[in-house]
């Protein structure tokens, strides 16, 4: 059976309501509240901006340092190692076999990295498990032939930056959720880019395609 309504009078709640009403009118603490809010906001914002990338990306070192500057000087040009095959496909990062065209039997140079290379990989005939900074997600098809001298005649710097001047290999950072290289989203956590090579998202490809060819391309232009 239903409860009778007469019991429902409840004085304490009425006074509670009045108290709240009084509090709303009394705004002395408001200024402090706003300041506190701003401080809290700044702390949270700064904290998350600094902390978030550390949480999002794991750091991985390359097997050993690679001196692009030296290799370009010694080998003459990029194409000595990175070249198009006759079927138009791109060789990418060279295999051990390509290294061995120069690095035969005894070490070239005296660096620690050379020692690691010779002992761990050359002697054991093992491929070097490089982490590829520019590696795109699996669903992406990229045609080097269409972009370099055979195609759009773009400079490799436009996407890869001034890599020929680097003497050491920077730490590779991997997105823990997607497994993608941080170079895709870019170093800047807000996705702001200053140089053409700072970011390599689909929108960046589409923007350039739109500017250069008048159309951003259909899905299958860059997807597989």
């Amino acid at each position: 059976m239903s409860e009778l309504e007469n019991k429902a009078k409840n004085d304490s709640t009425i006074s509670a309501g009045e108290k709240i009403a009084q509090k709303i009118k009394d705004d002395k603490g408001l200024g402090q509240g706003v300041i506190l809010f701003i401080i809290a906001f700044v702390v949270c914002f700064a904290g998350s901006t600094l902390l978030f990338p550390k949480l999002l990306y794991s750091k991985k070192e390359q097997p050993f340092n690679f001196d692009h500057y030296l290799h370009v000087y010694e080998a003459g040009d990029c194409e000595a190692c990175h070249y198009l095959r006759e079927d138009g496909s791109f060789s990418g990062i060279p295999k051990l076999e390509t290294c061995m065209e120069c690095h035969v039997e005894e070490p070239l140079g005296v660096t620690d990295d050379e020692v690691v290379f010779v002992k761990e990989y050359l002697a054991k005939d093992k491929e070097i498990p490089w982490h590829v900074y520019a590696k795109q997600p699996d669903c992406v098809f990229f045609s080097h032939a269409g972009h370099i001298d055979t195609g759009a005649r773009m400079d490799f710097n436009e996407c890869h930056g001034p890599i020929e001047e680097t003497k050491t290999s920077r730490t590779y950072e991997e997105n823990r959720i997607t497994g993608y290289s941080r170079d895709i989203w870019g170093k800047n956590i807000f996705g702001i880019k200053k140089n053409s090579w700072d970011r390599m998202k689909m929108d960046d490809c589409a923007k350039c395609h739109k500017e250069e060819t008048g159309h951003q391309g259909y899905c299958f232009q860059c997807h597989k």
């Binding site: 239903s2 409860e3 309504e5 429902a8 409840n10 709640t13």
Partner: peptide, 12 residues
């Protein structure tokens, strides 16, 4: 009962 609309009857 304090939550039930005034003058309305509801089951227990």
């Amino acid at each position: 009962s304090a939550l039930i609309p005034e003058g309305a009857k509801r089951c227990s």
